[in-house]
């Protein structure tokens, strides 16, 4: 649940150092590097889409989902500063994201778009 991790009373006390720490964001070089990584992953994804042997292989779907998750996490951590900001924001984002992801997965199971194979 979203509020659980910060129910520790000390976590939300005013902390001058954390307040200041917010402004210690990385400089533009990091941002450009992150942009280059994002571009590279996108090229990788599109490349995979056009290689029939990759599309046909069993790693195609897991690979694309992983790459997408990496891009997602990179933007959230660096461009949205979640890596550097107050941990309250991390809780406010990851809590709902977790519930959203679980809902998505449950719905896909319920509608038979995902099938769990037990045993062999």
């Amino acid at each position: 649940m979203a509020e659980n991790p910060h129910s520790d009373p000390s976590a939300t006390e005013p902390k001058a150092d954390e307040h200041i720490a917010q402004h210690h964001h990385p400089d533009w070089k990091t941002y450009v590097k992150v942009g280059a990584v994002l571009t590279a992953i996108t090229i990788w994804e599109v490349w995979a889409y056009y290689i029939p042997s990759v599309v046909a292989s069993r790693i195609f779907v897991p690979m694309l989902l992983t790459l997408s998750a990496v891009k997602f996490a990179t933007v959230v951590m660096f461009y949205m500063h979640l890596k550097y900001d107050h941990r309250l924001f991390r809780v406010l984002f990851t809590g709902p994201l977790l519930i959203a992801a679980l809902t998505l997965i449950s719905l896909l199971f319920l509608f038979g778009q995902l099938v769990a194979r037990f045993g062999r």
């Binding site: 979203a2 709902p96 994201l97 959203a100 992801a101 998505l104 896909l108 778009q113």
Partner: peptide, 17 residues
Amino acid sequence: IGSECMLFVSLISTYLI
């Protein structure tokens, strides 16, 4: 933004369903 996660998950779920 947390709320928007649920909004887009509803849309994406429906697309996938």
